[in-house]
């Protein structure tokens, strides 16, 4: 195991990607506000804030954004094994579909929110079961939120890899079709 493996594994986690992106957005928003302040009302204070806070924020924000892109790339093309802590949200309803997850051990709950109704748990999944395939096959956003109930180890398969298998392995195709028919139908408004 190389010394980079733990870092790559961390980067591959969805939450890490989101946090890095959020940090980049916060820094850039802060820098933009300070730039506006300095340009509109140039005083010693606003100039100093621009030079000492806004400029480093821009550099750091852009770097973080590039790290987020790298993270996203690694998630799509890297190692297929991931670990999630208890209570962690793996993806949210409405997110872009990017992976299929197959649970090695641990449990997750599937939560769906509908307009004007409270979100409710519609399924629980455990070892050997998989989730996340519907968005990839339908090329639609996630139809539900998936959150871990316990620590979860899972194997992930990227959209491209999954669709190749789905297209060329008839047994897998039939099996997935069958499971999809058994799952609750998502609201039509969610595409």
């Amino acid at each position: 195991m190389s010394t980079l493996d733990p870092i790559v594994e961390r980067l591959q986690k969805l939450q890490t990607y989101r946090r890095i992106l959020l940090a980049a957005q916060i820094l850039i928003v802060l820098a933009a506000l300070l730039a506006l302040l300095a340009v509109q009302n140039l005083t010693p204070i606003t100039l100093s804030l621009f030079l000492t806070v806004a400029l480093p924020s821009i550099v750091l924000g852009v770097l973080l954004y590039l790290v987020a892109i790298l993270t996203s790339f690694l998630r799509r093309h890297g190692v297929s094994h991931v670990h999630f802590a208890p209570g962690e949200t793996i993806f949210r309803q409405g997110d872009e579909g990017d992976f299929v997850y197959s649970i090695i051990d641990g449990q997750v709950e599937v939560i769906r929110g509908e307009p004007d109704r409270e979100a409710k748990v519609i399924n629980r999944l455990g070892p050997g079961e998989y989730f996340g395939e519907m968005a990839l096959i339908r090329h639609a956003p996630r139809t539900a939120t998936v959150r871990t109930l316990t620590a979860v180890n899972a194997v992930v398969l990227s959209q491209a890899d999954f669709l190749v298998l789905y297209t060329y392995l008839p047994d897998l195709h039939r099996s997935i079709e069958k499971i999809m028919q058994q799952r609750p139908v998502p609201p039509s408004t969610e595409g």
Binding site: I28, L42, P44, L47, L51, V62, Y65
Partner: peptide
């Protein structure tokens, strides 16, 4: 929004504020 425009702001904002701070009104603001 997170790469192209911030880098433009970095250069344009620096030019604008640093050049603006050379003005007598800026010195007089203290």
């Amino acid at each position: 929004s997170l790469c192209v425009l911030p880098l433009l702001i970095l250069f344009l904002g620096s030019f604008s504020t640093l050049e603006g701070s050379k003005r007598t009104e800026f010195c007089h603001s203290c």
